[in-house]
């Protein structure tokens, strides 16, 4: 079912607020990854706030949907979503990257709502595959989502999982690539050209859906297509913009992992309507 216009607007407003809160936390920690947290905002928000079956009151429900944030450095956007779902206290954002915090720089499985540790790129999709295999064996209706970065696709292990998941017919597994065209040292074209990404996944046997990763309606249809597809896993290739929402961060590798100065923070807040 497509989102109603009203619901789409609500989610868009949530995305705006989450961007504000995530940048506030990264600014507070004076460390973290603004670019990749902003680009994955709609993807995570739509999944957690609309589509996934997860409930903080039943965190061990064997039939809950799972999400592996393979690009673990976008953790703040995951945490903000988990807070909204009630897994974490609202004021915990301010403890990001601080001593004794539940909000580690990269996701820890000891944090409520986090299903798998991540941070080292390249191994998340395989872990999601393991979940999907186990859930199938259990006869569970649960779905597994793996959210990857495009730079992360440089890792060979991603392609090992890309090759094996279709073999096992994992139609309960959906990979989502946050295709923002920028990695750490530079753009993907400069560091490791991806070339024809949809064709690559397709050649490995995946159902490939491409969409605008900042368009909630388009993302929603893509996930629904994935749910409806039987026999093979689906990859959603989401066209995104690194640093989306803050003009001076957009498309810039320099904003991959950089502390935000007070001045830049104020500018970003003005653009995002932070004080609304």
């Amino acid at each position: 079912m497509p989102l109603t216009n009203e619901r789409a607007e609500e989610l868009a407003e949530q995305c705006r607020q989450f961007r504000v809160d995530v940048l506030t936390a990264i600014h507070g920690a004076q460390s973290g990854h603004p670019g990749g947290s902003l680009s994955v905002c709609e993807i995570l928000t739509l999944l957690y706030q609309e589509l996934m079956n997860v409930d903080a009151k039943r965190p061990d429900d064997p039939d809950r949907d799972r999400l592996v944030l393979c690009k673990g450095h976008a953790a703040p956007m995951l945490y903000r979503n988990l807070i909204e779902k009630g897994f974490l206290p609202a004021d915990s954002m301010a403890t990001l990257r601080k001593l004794d915090s539940q909000l580690q720089g990269h996701p820890s499985i000891h944090t409520p709502g986090v299903e798998m540790p991540s941070g080292p790129l390249g191994i998340g999709l395989s872990a999601a595959q393991g979940m999907a295999l186990g859930l199938k064996l259990n006869g569970s209706p649960a779905r597994v989502y793996a959210v990857l970065g495009d730079g992360e696709l440089n890792e060979g292990a991603v392609w090992e999982a890309a090759m094996s998941a279709p073999k096992f017919g994992l139609d309960n597994l959906t990979a989502i690539v946050d295709w923002n065209k920028v990695q750490l040292d530079g753009t993907t074209d400069e560091i490791m050209p991806i070339r024809d990404l949809p064709a690559k996944w397709s050649a490995f046997g995946w159902n490939v859906v491409r969409c605008d990763g900042h368009d909630l309606q388009a993302l929603c249809s893509a996930v629904e297509l994935a749910r409806a597809t039987k026999g093979v896993p689906t990859v959603i290739i989401a066209d995104t913009i690194k640093g989306k929402g803050v003009s001076f961060m957009e498309g810039k590798a320099a904003w991959h992992g950089k502390a935000i100065s007070d001045e830049d923070y104020a500018k970003a807040m003005a653009e995002l309507g932070g004080d609304r």
């Binding site: 790129l121 390249g122 730079g151 992360e152 440089n154 890792e155 060979g156 990695q183 750490l184 040292d185 400069e190 560091i191 490791m192």
Partner: peptide
């Protein structure tokens, strides 16, 4: 893909022909 952090970039800028950024691999 961490040459700015490891500082191998200094070499890379001076000798681009002898510097290989392998990506995250």
């Amino acid at each position: 893909d961490l040459s700015g952090s490891t500082k191998s970039k200094v070499f890379g800028q001076k000798f681009p022909d002898r510097f290989f950024n392998m990506g995250i691999a």
